[in-house]
Simulated scan of single mutants.
Amino acid sequence: MTPASSVLLLTTLTGFGYGLLAWLGVFASARALPASPWFVPVAVVIGLAFASAGLLASTLHLGRPERAWRAFSQWRSSWLSREGVASMLTYPPAMAFAALWWLMGPGAIATRAVGLLAAILGMVTVFCTAMIYASLKPIRQWHNRHTAPDYLIFALFSGAVLLAALLGMWFGHVLIAGIVAVIAALIGAGAKLAYWRFIDAQSPLATLASATGLANFGMVKPLDQPHFTENYILREMGYQIARKHAARLRRIVLIMAFLLPALLALIATFGVLPAIAAPLAVVLAGAGLFIERWLFFAEATHVSALYYGRAA
């Protein structure tokens, strides 16, 4: 599939935003955040800013962006619509969480309850985003048991790194958020490796012989190409990336998105320049996850490409 920059921004930025909201809610419920009256309100605004930027970026690839609101009406059958509805439902409790933290303090039951609600809705939104791709049966690299859990893991990882960075810059220490970021980074790296092993070993969904119903006659080859010029299917669904480039990008993803942020988060946890190490971890994680999202789309193959002599 051709990677669209707008969708790459959507899946990367919303992961940071909703992941941060999730950890804020969890940490607040466990009373593991500093009792500063301004920290959580500012952090919530930052999380919503990341999420909003991603959601707005997603409209850039629409032919008629002004009609995007119509997607909300199809929530009974469309994961895209459910994503939009869930994202909107997250805003009120997130803003209420920030307001209650400032007005009633971190110890209030209402503050912690609303924070958990915002955390849950944020993760529900990420899950809906993941299911947009996991529900597409013609694309084997997406329609599998790894896609949805990976989206959730990467959101929690990026949110933990962002929370550690905010704590490091605000208070000069990252508390337990640094350890959480390290653990989440290692889990994310393991999940990504498992995903790559799965798609590399997975058999194609179909062959040209099975797609044409001629499998009993042996190997099937097209006599001529369906089209001699570029068309929509080749442009949007027939994108190819060389194996050597994919292998190189996979190594870059593991190092930049997970291993280096984990190392920096660990350094920040031990109190070594946390105001520098933790934000640098966010920058590397963001760049690495953006490449990971690009590779997630670039390696996906649609079964329609079979008719153009390409494997699916």
Rank of each mutant, 00 (worst) to 15 (best):
T2Q: 13
S5E: 11
S6A: 15
L10V: 01
L13S: 10
Y18S: 01
L21C: 02
L24S: 07
F39I: 08
P41W: 10
I46F: 13
G47P: 10
L48F: 13
F50S: 00
S52F: 15
L55N: 09
L60C: 01
R64E: 15
E66G: 03
A68H: 09
A68F: 14
W69H: 14
W69E: 04
A71S: 13
A71L: 13
W75Q: 10
S81A: 13
E83Q: 10
V85N: 13
P93S: 08
M95C: 07
M104H: 14
P106Y: 12
I109S: 10
T111W: 12
A113H: 02
L116K: 02
A118D: 07
A119F: 12
M123S: 02
V124N: 07
A130I: 05
M131H: 15
P138W: 13
R140H: 03
H146M: 09
L152I: 03
A155P: 02
L156K: 00
L156A: 09
G159K: 06
G168F: 11
M169R: 09
W170G: 00
I176S: 14
V180L: 11
L186Q: 04
A191H: 07
K192R: 08
S203A: 14
L205S: 09
A206D: 09
T207F: 09
L208C: 06
A211L: 08
G213I: 02
G213A: 02
L214R: 13
N216R: 14
F217A: 09
P222G: 03
P222W: 08
D224M: 13
P226C: 06
T229E: 15
T229F: 15
T229A: 14
E230G: 04
Y232W: 15
A247K: 12
R250Y: 10
R250A: 02
I252G: 14
L254E: 04
M256P: 00
L263W: 02
L263V: 07
T269S: 13
G271I: 04
A275K: 06
A275H: 12
L280W: 05
V282G: 04
V283H: 07
A285I: 03
A285K: 04
G286M: 09
I291Q: 14
R293G: 02
F296D: 06
V303R: 05
S304V: 00
Y307L: 11
Y308T: 03
G309P: 03
